[in-house]
Amino acid sequence: MLAFVFLFFMILTLGSAVIVLVSRNVLYSAFSLMVTFLGIAGLYVFAGADFLAVTQIMVYVGGILVLLVFGIMLTRNKADRGTNQPNTVKTEHRRTFWGILAAGGIFAILSTILSKARFQRIELDHYEPIERKTTIHDLGIGIMTNYVLPFEVAGILLMIALLGAAYLSGKTQSLGNK
C-alpha cells in the first residue's frame, strides 16, 4: 500500500516535470511546476523529513512560484498585449536534439553509477533507517547549536539578496546616462 502511494507521488513529480519540459505555454509550465514541488514535498515525507516537506511547500510553492508567475506576467511582449488573444505567453524550443542528448547522457551516467554502487548492502547490513517520530526537535536544536553560524550567515545572505533585488529592479534609468 505504502509503495503504491510512493509510486503515485513519484509519477506525479516526474510527469509534471515532463509537462514543464514539453509545454510551450509558459504559464502551463509554471503551474505544472507547482505540482512537481508538491510531489517532491510528498517524497520528503516518505524519506522521513516532515519539517523539510512543510518548508518545501512554504518556500517553493508559496514564495518562489509566486515570484516566477509575477515574472512571467511582467515580461510579456508588448506585441501580444494589443491583440484579442487570450493571455498566452509562448516560449520557443531550440536545440531540442542536443538538449535531449545531454540530458539522456547525464541520466545514463547517473543510472550506471547508481546501479554499480552497493547502496543495498549499506542499507541491509550496517545502517537501518532510523525511526523517529519527528525531526523538528533535532533540527531546531541543531540550528541553534552546531549550525548557528551558517544560520546567521543565511539570514544576512537573504537580507543582501532582498536589498540587491530591490535595487536592481527599481527605476535606475539615469545610471546608464552618466
Binding site: 516526474l14 509558459v26 517532491i40 515574472g71 538538449g99 540530458a103 539522456g104 541520466f107
Partner: peptide
Amino acid sequence: ALLFSIGLAIVIIKRNAIV
C-alpha cells in the same frame, strides 16, 4: 536522477529566461 535530467533538458532547450 530523472528529475535532474529533466531540469537539464529544460535549461538547454527552452528559450524563455524564466523557464
